[in-house]
Simulated scan of single mutants.
Amino acid sequence: MLVYFLVACDRLEEKREKKLRQSLPELQAALQAYAEANTANDVTLINACDSEDCADWELGISQPVTKNIHLNYPVDLFNGLAKQYGIDCEVGSIENGEREPVSYFGAHEGKGEAFLIAEYLEL
């Protein structure tokens, strides 16, 4: 199964959007480093942040998973980013190029748990 983790960039109040814009370079660098460190696991960076409107941004990763234990590292990564930068995250599956969200977690949504996300993904 191909899963994705995205930084929640839409429907943000002004204060959170400003903080996201300020943190964007650091978030991009952290996700790029994670993707590069995990190329053997086919982790792919999602980085489409060219629009002036941050609601249109897509920033995150995708990776194939076959067991719920494979979710531990990306969930830990995004929990850390949420704590450090005050972001929320969307996680879901990708089928036929379409994203299907199953859960949200982060600074405002609460800490993500790999086991529960695996249940939502039916892993």
Rank of each mutant, 00 (worst) to 15 (best):
V91L: 09
K18C: 06
F115G: 14
I46M: 04
L31C: 00
L2H: 00
K15W: 06
S51W: 10
G97K: 05
L24W: 03
P64G: 07
T44S: 05
M1I: 08
E109T: 08
L27I: 03
L116W: 15
E17A: 13
F105E: 13
Y85F: 12
R21H: 02
C49K: 03
A107I: 10
E122F: 08
E100V: 06
A82V: 07
L81V: 11
P101L: 06
F5M: 14
E109M: 01
D50P: 09
S93D: 01
V91E: 11
N47W: 00
G110Q: 09
F105A: 14
A40F: 10
A33M: 05
L123T: 06
L24F: 02
P25Q: 04
D42G: 03
L20Y: 00
K18N: 11
F78K: 10
A82L: 00
N38F: 08
K15G: 09
Y73N: 15
K111L: 15
T66C: 14
I46C: 02
L123D: 00
G86P: 14
Q22G: 11
K67R: 12
P101S: 04
D50Q: 10
W57M: 02
A118W: 05
I87T: 14
L31K: 00
E52P: 04
D50G: 15
V43E: 02
Y73W: 15
P101A: 02
A55M: 04
G86D: 13
D50E: 11
A40I: 07
G80C: 02
K83M: 11
Y73G: 15
D42E: 05
R16F: 14
A30L: 05
Q84R: 12
A48D: 12
I87N: 12
G110C: 07
Q84A: 06
R11M: 13
S62Q: 05
D88P: 12
D42H: 03
S23L: 00
Y4Q: 02
P64H: 09
L59C: 04
C89T: 12
D10K: 13
D50T: 13
V43M: 08
L12C: 03
T66S: 14
E113V: 15
W57I: 07
M1Y: 04
Q63G: 04
I69N: 11
